[in-house]
């Protein structure tokens, strides 16, 4: 069974770009608080989802719908509607995190294939077996805290598929267990599907350059001409213990391209590319490159061959293989 490349689609245009670039599956969400990339102007209306699934299926690709936030107390209708709309659109699976949403899906949409979102942070055989046995979850998106060796051991101990992030933005915090954004802004991935929401981001220029502030907290400062990343709280510079710098994570993005073969050997079913907020040009380029690499690996290609295919993505920017190598910790 060949490895599945799961690619991001923040908009219908990005979905088409990803499918045309060779994605085996795309993941996307509805334009509301039911998905964890609830950024303004992003995501799909129910009609766009129908059309997106039709387009993907016509090209032999799957659509996985992320309904991966935690339902608001007393207001679960949006999550129920998202499940119903995903099934109606013909989605190949839904990606869920909340116990209530999982329970509802397992009870009311028994034919819908369920994947467990990284937001559920299931990292042990016990937790994974619980989700599989209780709700019939078929695939786990693994928390970005495990090393390749740990993933291999985990896969040997569980009976469900695993999906691993290989490229894109990297959360240094365990996803689904982080309230840093709501501490500063009142909005967080678990509460509202956003982290470091743009309406709380402000730039101000002064003598020392540009300050990036999130709800009044300075999360970084840049001198003139110094490059800056998206102002995500945990990627900023802070002062602690007499030192100043990137305390939580350097401004790097994840690139586990060199570990694809090792991940496949560790039993991973699907490789996931992050970036539903990224542009279609970027998505297409990354997908095309990874598809070529995956095919080369499937065909038994050498490491050198795969490395050459991925060289374009590796050079230049600052990248890390993240938790897949234990030294990251």
């Amino acid at each position: 069974m060949s490895i599945e490349l799961v690619c991001p689609a923040g908009t219908p245009a990005a979905l088409r770009a990803a499918v045309e670039a060779g994605a085996h599956a795309v993941y996307c969400g509805f334009r509301d608080e039911t998905n964890a990339r609830n950024f303004p102007g992003l995501n799909f209306s129910p009609d766009e989802m129908v059309e997106g699934v039709r387009f993907a299926h016509a090209h032999g690709a799957k659509v996985l719908v992320a309904i991966n936030t935690f339902a608001t107390a007393g207001a679960m209708d949006a999550w129920k509607a998202a499940l119903a709309n995903a099934e109606k659109a013909g989605a190949d699976a839904v990606i869920l995190a909340d116990l209530a949403v999982l329970d509802h899906a397992a009870t009311h949409h028994p034919n819908l294939r369920l994947h467990l979102s990284v937001q559920a942070a299931a990292a042990t055989p016990e937790a994974i077996a619980f989700y599989a046995d209780t709700f019939g979850v078929k695939r786990i998106v693994m928390p970005r805290v495990l090393s390749v060796e740990e993933i291999a051991k985990l896969n040997a101990a569980i009976n469900v598929e695993t999906e691993a992030f290989v490229f894109g933005g990297l959360c240094p915090m365990t996803e689904g267990r982080c309230s840093l954004s709501s501490y500063a802004t009142g909005k967080s991935p678990n509460l509202t599907g956003v982290c470091s929401p743009p309406e709380h981001v402000a730039y101000s220029e002064d003598r020392d350059g540009t300050a990036t502030r999130l709800a009044g907290f300075t999360i970084d400062r840049f001198g003139a001409g110094e490059p800056a990343g998206y102002p995500t709280l945990c990627k900023g510079r802070f002062a602690a213990g007499g030192k100043t710098g990137y305390l939580f994570e350097d401004p790097v993005s994840l690139n586990a391209a060199s570990l694809i073969a090792a991940l496949v050997k560790a039993g991973v079913t699907a490789l996931k590319i992050e970036g539903r907020q990224r542009g279609k040009g970027y998505v297409a380029e990354v997908v095309r490159t990874f598809r070529a690499a995956v095919e080369a690996i499937d065909a038994g290609g050498t490491e050198v061959e795969v490395g050459r295919l991925l060289a374009g993505l590796v050079e230049g920017g600052r990248q890390t293989s993240g938790a897949y190598k234990k030294t990251w910790r």
Binding site: P143, R144, V145, L146, P172, M173, T174, R177, C178, S179, L180, Y183, C234, A240, G241, K243, L247, F248, A323, K326, T327, W328, R329
Partner: peptide, 21 residues
């Protein structure tokens, strides 16, 4: 103090130039 986040990475170790292990 509110427990806000957990990570696979140890920030005390990182700040001291050490690995978690």
């Amino acid at each position: 103090r509110l427990p806000l986040a957990l990570s696979g990475r140890c920030y005390h170790a990182r700040l001291a130039g050490l690995h978690k292990d």
